[in-house]
Design a protein around this nucleic acid. Structure first.
Lengths: 115, 115
DNA sequence: TTCATATATCGGCTATTCTTGATACATGGA
DNA sequence: TCCATGTATCAAGAATAGCCGATATATGAA
């Protein structure tokens, strides 16, 4: 993950319709959603939705597989996690006091396996 | 933090020069950096840098205080943490298995106070 | 093959963003 | 007050992004 990949992913998410689309996909993991359903749920024209989805895919934030006539989109959570790590790595390097509160805020809802 | 604030923050970071500037600021917490130093370190004209910094400030990702003739910029880490929480909240809601690996990857470098 | 359905791509338009030279504003020193 | 320094704003051109009607492509059914 270099700065250009990160920029591309951030740009893909830096548009409210696409961010909504991504959140929608995350919420439908691991099953995914057909392109048509996404456009309908977002209330936007089919081709606009298709363009946005292509941008998410191009940034590596989503993937698609054909299912008969429809094409199912899924969020790429690993890639999303990499982006978050990239963003957070900076403040962690030698300055744990900065990121610790984030982990603290995240832990209750994620409840990683208790030691 | 609503979707429009998040979009604005993501858009602010979705440009490699600004992302570099923000990383630079994060790396100089808590002291901050004068505007001139930022432009020099990034190797860009002073006015370009000023515009980018204004965008970071407008998105809430940075703040500035005057120090004599120069103006010192600082990263707003609380705000940055809120953005990350917003992005990660979705995958945590009822699906800890998605975010747990992120916490696991983050913990070693952040080393929150051990229980 | 023909038709219907699901999605992608094209074309052109508008709006926004990025960049930078020129210039204005603010501060400190003499 | 006058000048030097540090930073912000203006203006304008180039590039990019977003939108959507029209159309193309791909699949499945008859």
């Amino acid at each position: 993950m270099d700065i250009n990949e990160a920029s591309s992913m951030l740009a893909a998410l830096a548009q409210s319709t696409r961010l909504q689309a991504f959140r929608l996909l995350v919420g439908h993991e691991p099953g995914g959603l057909p392109a048509g359903d996404i456009a309908r749920k977002l209330g936007i024209p089919q081709n606009t939705s298709s363009t946005h989805l292509a941008i998410l895919v191009n940034a590596g934030l989503a993937g698609s597989t054909r299912n008969g006539r429809s094409i199912t989109y899924r969020a790429n959570l690993d890639r999303f996690r990499e982006l978050n790590l990239y963003l957070l790595k900076d403040c962690c390097n030698g300055r744990a006091e900065i990121c610790a509160p984030l982990i603290a805020a995240l832990t209750p809802c994620c409840a990683a396996t208790p030691a």
